[in-house]
Design a protein around this nucleic acid. Sequence first.
DNA 1: TCGGTTTTGTTCTATGGTGCGACAAAACCG
DNA 2: CGGTTTTGTCGCACCATAGAACAAAACCGA
Lengths: 400, 400
Amino acid sequence: MADGEAVQLGARQSTLRASNLGLVLRTVCAADAPPSRADVAARTGMTRATAARLVDGLVAGGLLVEGERDPLPRRGRPGTPLLPGGRVAALGLQVDAGLLAARVLDLRGRVVAERLVDGDWVGSDPGPTLERLGRLAADVLRDLAGRVRLAGAGLALPGIVDADRGVLLRAPNLGWHDLRPADVLAPHLPDGLDPVLGNEADLAARTVAETAPGRPGPHPDFLYVSGQIGVGGAVVLDGRVMRGSAGWAGEVGHVCVDPDGPPCRCGSTGCLEQYAGRHALLAAAGLPRDASPGQLLDNAATGDPSARAALDGARRALAIALAGVLNVLDIPTVVLGGHLGGLAAELGPGLEDGLAARVLSARWRRPRLEAAAPDAAPAATGAALRALADVLADPVRWLD
Amino acid sequence: MADGEAVQLGARQSTLRASNLGLVLRTVCAADAPPSRADVAARTGMTRATAARLVDGLVAGGLLVEGERDPLPRRGRPGTPLLPGGRVAALGLQVDAGLLAARVLDLRGRVVAERLVDGDWVGSDPGPTLERLGRLAADVLRDLAGRVRLAGAGLALPGIVDADRGVLLRAPNLGWHDLRPADVLAPHLPDGLDPVLGNEADLAARTVAETAPGRPGPHPDFLYVSGQIGVGGAVVLDGRVMRGSAGWAGEVGHVCVDPDGPPCRCGSTGCLEQYAGRHALLAAAGLPRDASPGQLLDNAATGDPSARAALDGARRALAIALAGVLNVLDIPTVVLGGHLGGLAAELGPGLEDGLAARVLSARWRRPRLEAAAPDAAPAATGAALRALADVLADPVRWLD
DNA sequence: TCGGTTTTGTTCTATGGTGCGACAAAACCG
DNA sequence: CGGTTTTGTCGCACCATAGAACAAAACCGA
């Protein structure tokens, strides 16, 4: 038996129970309206007896709660509506070039507490910045005064992270590299609450993939493009964010749009980021780098030629780069977030045409473009969603 | 309960058994050397009693067989080596611009019968060609004379297919579109053996992802690039071929390398295919389109400037296009197949450098390039592997 | 040669989770 | 107010795995 070790463990009876508990919990979370025990049984194919027993276990553990009976008259004995437990929640943190955020999300997807701070952390000192974030997190948790059970925490960062080791490898916009945020944050957080690192675009994409924990969003497959100082991205297939073999996926900002284009700080030439990144876009439009996308739109509306040229260039570069990704991955939808979300109405129609011209499968299914819901800190929500996904994946660990 | 229907079925006891049977079967298939019942138990974490009972079931159904005891002396009672059943097999078919293939692969990954026919089917009439393939398949099955139990069949096609409906949507190199190969093939095949359609590159990639049914290949994550008349590709993540939301993924041939480049028949400009496709490459080298990659290499070796320019152009285009994919998906390895496999030794070193310069994560993990094992019809093997994967996924259906 | 050791494979019983059928509960309907 | 309908619960049977003891088949060493 020299070769190989255990690849996967055999399932036992307790595995069965764990699996079904998770299924019941996810079924309740995914439902549009609070289902009864009988609804859960019908949707999972289990008997009412089994579904009820599992539900009872989840209710006892606080992961589900029984709601008030709805008063509208229906035939037969009324069922007890089931909802995800509102006292189970997770902490989502975010550091961005222009924002610090701490947010607590409960199992129903409600923001139960948050604090946001605007500022400029480009080229900042990591230590004090993370200290500030730690205090923000402590404040948020104090606001809640123990009204929730924290199931986990996550930290969104605008860069490449090694989630397993908890190390931020490189965040060019912040000027940070090779550090462990947990070392600074830990004293501010409850014991054992270790924030899992994640990439900003990956986590922001998660808020589009699931509108609440366990509730799938409108698109199962899409490419999320996050306009920040640079351009990040994330690929979502079958509702899951693809993290790549080492968790570094989604660098759509460095797809080559024109090999003869301007040099990029990544070492390559003509990267998408050089046309559609926030700084590049504003510079091309002759605006200062702290201008807003709204100003760019205003200038373009009044006929400013450099603003229009900047938008045209971004539109063309996005069409080329995104079409490549859509061709390789057969994704039907692109969701624009960050500053590109604000420009979606302007870029949209022309960009859709550009994609249709370059995407091979467009004749059967025309690629669609849409804007992400406006939110200053979507990745903070995504970080909390990721932590809550652990609960949904294996509820047994949280039943104690 | 107005909303939604059953998303996933609850697990029951029989599910447990089915899941564990599959695990045992896959464990045996994945092993380097034939394991004993005790080995299986150790690797799966099951008790020897349970592992033995599951193994007995699989042996009774012919999915596993007991081998001869190996004579090398070891302490303790010798175990009975277990092997995948050699009588369970699947049929893999392939239509390519220059090849028809029918191949039967058994559960151990051995080719137990095959017939290949060279020819030129560019712009061919689908009916007669598929008739020919059907006769080829019937011949192969007659060779076997019922010595195997066919578990399924697959058909690899160089184009975009709708596997669910069994329709070939468009195969530009063949000049085929919107047809159902099963209509022509069915009379030549045993009743009920309906070949599942698949894309040539996807299925060829599968042979790299698993060297035999259930046995993972050397790389869990890689990009397969298939050099045909055009350039196809497939993304393999965690050992699984990503088929995209509609099964049309992998069109790396139409990633834009240079927006000002030559027009492509897909409607876009400067596609990779215009630089690294077989026809484009040979044309650039001043060779006739039926020349071989070997001739191209010979010309380049003797210093022919147009041959070298063609190779340089392909190398540069591949670097740009593949780097984009590697950036977005965080894939560490590229496997070159088809005519590009033959050119890998020539393109390799320079191409690896080009990728390293453009891939963002290269500083932590340098992208690697390698050639696929030479095989005239890898996609036929892949089609059979796909069918056999159904057996490994749920062996219960095949035990009866 | 033969008992001790080691590892494999089998047998038996216990545990635990789900399915099934019956029944009680809680509403509406006529 | 009884009939109908749907929900939730209870008790029992079934079945798959765990665990432990036992039988089998080899090697090792005296």
